[in-house]
Design a protein around this nucleic acid. Structure first.
Lengths: 219, 219
DNA sequence: AGTCCTACGCTTACAACGTAAGCTCGTCAA
DNA sequence: TTGACGAGCTTACGTTGTAAGCGTAGGACT
């Protein structure tokens, strides 16, 4: 099993994991076949023995991210289940910001992705949702989660200090009084100590869950 | 003004517009500097007289898409204003599917983008929203719109017939009974004649607006 | 009229990318 | 012992973004 020469052999899993690590560390744009090979102490072309092409690599990485999302246990109540899964999904997309952009460009879902969606639907259906209402719920929640992750990934800062710095240079460039309300929001809210954009997530999520609960009750 | 030789001169506007047209017609991945030059009957390097680099080009194109979104008129009631603008935004992102992915990778907003955001905030504030509640509303609606557009852009089909075809090959590959609820949803709902994923958009949107209205009333 | 400057488009060149084609060589079954 | 197989390597090609510098036409000024 273990080869007598020093290094353990490549495998699809090792390639995907290394790709994920590289994208996490230095961004998706710096994930090239040559650099990925380097990280694995292998020539670029050797990767093609385990991955059909770069698209296949990205598909596999995307599926790995989906596999990190916690799935609701069998028989869980729909509302906490949806809430937990949405929070878990956002956390996964936040750990791997490049993945949000990939979701849009890669069209063929992997097994973890399919399993994920199927479990969500099961939870809704056993929670009393009709098929059309389950479709509504699924679409609304997923759109919100992806969209939030997309915006979060776009923010060019992670900490409050960085935010302040960015806002500073932004306003310097844009003549603050041309966008008075944007300025107001930034100065009196976003730049306040303790502000955390991530906290917005649960507010909007609960807005949607409230609405779905009402819609379900009206059935 | 008009040069004596045949062709009218390049300009940043012409370059951006041609880029947008090319991306619309053949997808973002086929937008290369050489092809863009060809479309304008110019060599690739000439474009750099009007655009700093490809990133600048993409930023400009993104801002053009934002400029297509209808802004609420002064003094409009917040709820119809938010509704119309969300619908208009989705329509613009649907016309230019590549733009949704760009929003995530491009960090520096253009003037149309800033103006757009500022107008939205103005409408909310004059509608009675406090700054924090306006932030909540802004974040929730925008996340939903982008997320929906992202999912819509991912769908590998445009018409119901194409959808049926795609579903067919997908299920053939994935052993239908491994994902029973996904199968149920697809067969009894998505593949029904007249199904239109786009219709889901307004359902989720109204869910959010209902919630915001309630939150505002509770102030 | 002659001179110069400035824009703008063109040419050439290069490093980095994804990947096709074919090679090498260690491992193991027969 | 042999022969096949498969993982990793080498080489090579076309395409990409863009740096550097050239040519030239038109307008401004003397």
């Amino acid at each position: 099993m273990v080869p007598p020469n020093g290094r353990l052999p490549l495998s699809r899993e090792r390639v995907l994991a290394a790709g994920l690590a590289l994208a996490d560390a230095h961004g998706l744009e710096s994930l090239t076949m040559r650099r990925l090979g380097e990280a694995l102490h292998v020539e670029a072309m050797s990767l093609y023995k385990h991955v059909a092409n770069k698209g296949d690599l990205l598909d596999g990485m995307t599926d790995l991210v989906f596999a990190e999302i916690a799935l609701p246990p069998d028989g869980a109540a729909w509302r906490p289940a949806m809430r937990d899964r949405a929070i878990s999904a956002r956390a996964a997309l936040r750990r791997h910001p490049w993945a949000t952009a990939l979701v849009s460009s890669r069209t063929s879902p992997g097994p973890a992705t399919l399993r994920h969606h199927d479990t969500v639907l099961r939870t809704l259906r056993t929670g009393g949702f009709s098929v059309p209402l389950a479709a509504h719920a699924f679409s609304a929640i997923d759109s919100y989660v992806y969209g939030f992750a997309l915006q979060e990934a776009t923010l060019p800062f992670d900490t409050a200090e960085e935010a302040a710095e960015v806002a500073q240079t932004m306003f310097a460039r844009m003549a603050a009084d041309r966008y008075p309300h944007l300025t107001e929001l930034t100065v009196t809210h976003v730049l306040q100590p303790g502000y955390d954009y991530g906290a917005e997530f649960e507010y909007g999520l609960d807005l949607i869950l409230d609405g779905l609960e009402r819609a379900l009750a009206a059935t």
